[in-house]
Design a protein around this nucleic acid. Structure first.
Lengths: 237, 237
DNA sequence: AAGGCTATGTTGACGGTGTCAAGATAAAGT
DNA sequence: ACTTTATCTTGACACCGTCAACATAGCCTT
């Protein structure tokens, strides 16, 4: 009797936890917990990953606000305070998720930018659309990455900054490239221009996400308008 | 004994509550509350206004997050649940504050736009700077007005929408004007262009407020860069 | 192999939050 | 004067983040 596989139902969605160690667990004291306790090993194995996965899921489904450490702990089948052994506090956990978001986006941006078979102009347009599209498709993640929750009061983890900053650096790099190619005005400081272009994308994304003054049926038009605007500006210089 | 003025310490900062009615209050049952209860009338007089003022104060000083109904109630010298007789829930109260913010900003925008002694170009630049400046100077209010808290899940009150929508309509009006004056490109749909320009300002504001990739010492440069960009774009058309 | 160190997980507790229900009070309308 | 209605009260509930103290088990050293 009692469970044979002590690791069951422990790992989260798509993460392969290293179950090798946990598999050697004791089956000796089988009488200890009588009912309602289906053989749970005291230690989880990879709680950190499980928490992050549970968080990512809850994030995309129900938003940042309804994301509590207690629920995540429950999702992972663990007690309320267990997460504190893996994250300093809630903010640290959120930072970790956001860091992954930045890392992912950085990859996507690179991929788009480095398509050497396409014209710089095409890549620029694609970048604009992809950025706004990403935000619209993952509103909760975007909100977490660029929202107030993480950045206010310098609450951002060092780890987070380490990922997020290169991400913007890349925006500057791209901006310089597009300036050289004559797509963006050459008479502006690259850093400022990068801030403004990013700002525009950011702003459009927020308007869409918050549903304030725009809805998703206008994404394409808004992106085109923004891209046109910037590229038109370069024709004078 | 007991207090003679039942309205003392009741009205908040700078609002003149209509104290006329409250002044006629009973002084009869002076023996009721013995100690530590300095003659408080059962009814507040103008709780709604008091709450809004307390909220505005707390907002500017400590941010949206540390704004709880219970604290506001305490500020107003009233029990925890009293606010519920004036606002459906917390979101409704926040909406009311934001509504005032929109109303104020609408006035400011109008004032700037209607300075007939200045050139359209000068007014455009001033508008850009004022917008970003307002956001940077009142980060918490700006966050509340354009942040997620209020707009998500269609939580926005009808009252809020009634004030906020005309505010953006005005942005469209201004955009059309600037297009006519040749300041903004004429080959773009006014609505889209308004969304993009507003988006840019919004984005710059967010970058500044969240302190993600920009800090306040760059406000002027960023505004200039944005204004230049838009106006340069019109030179082709 | 024995014993201790350390990472990890547990329950208990505290103060904080939004919100509902039921009752108290006073103002307003009849 | 009586009733209705607006307002304010205490009590209660279910959450939340977080700390402290204790339990367990894996690991490392001897």
């Amino acid at each position: 009797m009692s469970a044979v596989n002590v690791t069951d139902m422990r790992e989260a969605d798509d993460v392969v936890t290293s179950a090798t160690d946990a598999a050697v667990n004791t089956v000796s004291n089988a009488v200890s917990s009588s009912v309602s306790n289906p053989a749970q090993s005291y230690h989880h194995g990879d709680l950190r990953t499980a928490l992050l996965n549970a968080a990512a899921k809850r994030l995309s489904e129900h938003g940042v606000d309804s994301l509590s450490l207690r629920k995540l702990a429950e999702d992972a089948g663990v007690s309320r305070t267990a997460p504190y052994h893996h994250f300093k506090d809630k903010s640290a956990l959120l930072s970790a998720i956001a860091a992954k978001g930045f890392s992912d986006w950085h990859s996507t941006a690179k991929r788009i930018f480095e398509q050497e078979d396409k014209t710089p102009s095409a890549r620029f347009r694609e970048f604009v659309c992809e950025y706004v599209g990403y935000a619209a498709a993952n509103p909760e993640m975007y909100e977490l990455m660029f929202g107030r929750t993480i950045w206010q009061n310098n609450a951002a983890t060092g780890d987070l900054k380490d990922v997020a900053f290169p991400c913007f650096q890349f925006q500057v790099t791209m901006t310089k490239f597009w300036q050289n190619k004559g797509l963006l005005p050459d008479n502006q400081d690259a850093l400022r221009l990068a801030q403004v272009t990013w700002g525009t994308l950011h702003g459009i994304a927020r308007l869409l996400i918050d549903g304030i003054y725009a809805d998703s049926s206008h994404i394409q038009e808004m992106c085109d308008c923004a891209a046109d605007l910037f590229m038109q500006a370069s024709n004078k210089a």
